[in-house]
Every structure is written in structure tokens, then in C-alpha cells.
């Protein structure tokens, strides 16, 4: 008895020591600021400039149509970006894991990683150089005589979607590749042998097999897109409002931290709700998708 507890004590202490950085990180940078923000979101300044408890910040959001629209728009576009990213990335992941030779697959994987060695800002500016009115693509189109005058390809929703998909691709590719890599090629052959067409093999065998990878990739891409500020701001221009810009405006432009905090919490609720709904509808579990 004595021996046992004597051995257990240092082991437990070691565990706490190992966990300490994580716990500190979570507490100091995530949990405490969020509690602070949450409290802030429930406070307003009354007519005498005194702080008072109120739900006005949340009421404000539901009353102002612009906020609402931006909110729904951000959610809908984030879902669209997630889906487009999946469409673009899946063939790439399939090619790398199932069709390319191992060495070629590795080179392709590195090519996929390469753009992420520079910052998102540089990548977005790269796209802007390509797409803007005086940009590379316009220059070629005009000099080849396909169009007469350069056209503006930036600052619209399509350009923004392009930027967001490009930014998200890697985060979809990595989980897809790792789940497809675990798939025995003979599963595909077996399905073919049992009479399945290519389409059936894809929808009934490959997609269900890769489902955990698709789920975790989708969650990451969706969250990153929903919380992205840079790309919608730079490539979307004035007509493509993103909800993060509203939060930024409240904090920085209007200096209304209470309102900004409320918006921040609404975005958190929204993303949690959509992820939960997505998991429910696809019958996947978070634990399985993240393992």
C-alpha cells in the first residue's frame, strides 16, 4: 500500500508537468480571454457612460439587416468554399495516392506544400498581381487580341472564392491523402470485379472509405474560411463583406468592443452549430474524423 502510493505520486506529478504547457496555453490564451470577451459582450455603456449588464449587443445584431445578411452570406460562402475545395482537391489526392508512382507522388506532395512556405499575405498578393486590371492575365489576353480592353477580375465574389479555395487546399489534401493511403487498392478491384461501374466504385467504396478524412478536412477548411479575414478583405473588395470584417470594424473602427465581442461569440456559435449539423447529417463522429 505504502509502496504503491509512493510510486504513483511522482508519476502523477510527471503527468501534470507534461500537461502544464498545454493547460497554461489553453487557460491563458483561449479560456480566460474568451470568458473576458463573453462578459464584455453582455455589457453596454448606459447614458451616463457607466457599464451595465444588457443583451443589447445581441439584440442589435438581430435588428440590423446588414449584420444578418453578412452573417448568412459568410456561412453560405464558407460552405461553398469547403465543397469547392473538396472538388478540386479530391482528384489531386486520388492521383497522388493511387495513380502516381511513389516517387512522383512525393514530388507532387511537395509541390502542394510549397506555396505554404510563404505567408498567406504574399500568396494573396500573388493572385492579385495575376488578376488585377493591369495584371499578368489581362496583359496576355490583350496582347493575344482575345479582349480589347483589360477587364477587372479582382474585387468580386468569384475572385474571393478562388483565393479562399487556394488558401484551403492543403488543409483538405493532407487528411484526404492520409485516408486514401490507407485504402487497399484491391478494394477498388474487388468492387469492379463484383460488377460495379467507375461511378459506383467512387460513390460506394472510395468516398465512404475516405469519409473520416473528408470530414476532418472539411471541418478544418470550413473553420479557417469562416474565420478568414485577409483573403475576403483583399480579394473580395467592397462588395464582398465577410463577417470577420464586421468584427474588425466594431473593434477597430467603431471602437465598440462590447459589440465586437458579441459578434465574435455569434461567429463561434455559428461555426460550432454548422460543424455539429454537418457531422449529424453525414453520420460521422468528431472523434473518428480527428483520429
Amino acid at each position: 500500500m505504502f509502496l504503491k502510493s509512493g510510486l504513483e505520486q511522482p508519476a502523477r506529478l510527471g503527468l501534470w508537468l507534461l500537461l502544464a504547457p498545454v493547460i497554461l496555453w489553453l487557460a491563458l490564451l483561449i479560456i480566460i480571454p474568451h470568458i473576458e470577451l463573453f462578459l464584455m459582450s453582455l455589457r453596454v455603456e448606459d447614458d451616463w457612460g457607466e457599464a451595465a449588464w444588457s443583451l443589447d449587443n445581441y439584440r442589435h445584431f438581430f435588428e440590423e439587416r446588414l449584420y444578418w445578411l453578412t452573417f448568412v452570406r459568410t456561412a453560405a460562402y464558407s460552405l461553398l468554399v469547403t465543397f469547392l475545395t473538396f472538388l478540386v482537391t479530391f482528384p489531386v489526392a486520388f492521383y497522388i495516392t493511387k495513380l502516381a508512382r511513389p516517387k512522383a507522388g512525393m514530388i507532387l506532395m511537395i509541390l502542394l506544400l510549397l506555396p505554404f512556405w510563404v505567408s498567406e499575405l504574399v500568396r494573396v498578393y500573388g493572385w492579385m498581381i495575376l488578376l488585377r486590371e493591369s495584371g499578368v492575365i489581362n496583359h496576355f489576353l490583350v496582347s493575344l487580341g482575345i479582349i480589347d480592353t483589360p477587364m477587372e477580375m479582382l474585387y468580386n465574389d468569384a475572385a474571393m472564392l478562388l483565393g479562399l479555395v487556394y488558401t484551403s487546399m492543403l488543409f483538405m489534401a493532407v487528411p484526404l491523402i492520409s485516408s486514401l493511403e490507407g485504402m487497399d487498392d484491391s478494394l477498388i478491384e474487388a468492387a469492379h470485379d463484383l460488377g460495379a461501374s467507375k461511378w459506383v466504385i467512387f460513390t460506394r467504396i472510395v468516398i465512404p472509405y475516405a469519409a473520416p478524412g473528408i470530414t476532418s478536412g472539411s471541418i478544418v477548411v470550413f473553420m479557417l474560411t469562416l474565420g478568414n479575414y485577409l483573403t475576403p478583405n483583399l480579394m473580395g473588395g467592397k462588395n464582398s463583406l465577410w463577417f470577420t470584417e464586421q468584427i474588425y470594424n466594431e473593434f477597430i473602427a467603431s471602437f465598440n468592443w462590447n459589440q465586437g465581442a458579441a459578434f465574435g461569440f455569434l461567429l463561434l456559435l455559428l461555426s460550432s452549430f454548422i460543424v455539429w449539423l454537418g457531422l449529424r447529417l453525414s453520420g460521422q463522429s468528431l472523434g473518428k474524423a480527428l483520429s
Binding site: S186, E189, A190, H192, D193, G195, I205, P208
Partner: peptide, 20 residues
């Protein structure tokens, strides 16, 4: 005749049962 149309079926070495 492609494999999915042949009157022949194969039991694979590692069986290739669909895990899902």
C-alpha cells in the same frame, strides 16, 4: 469484356472486404 461484366469472380489474396 471488362472485369465488371465477366461471368467470373475473384476472391482476393487479402480478401478486400469492404470495411465500411
Amino acid at each position: 469484356v471488362p472485369p465488371n461484366k465477366r461471368p467470373v469472380n475473384l476472391v482476393f489474396q487479402h480478401l478486400a472486404l469492404f470495411p465500411m
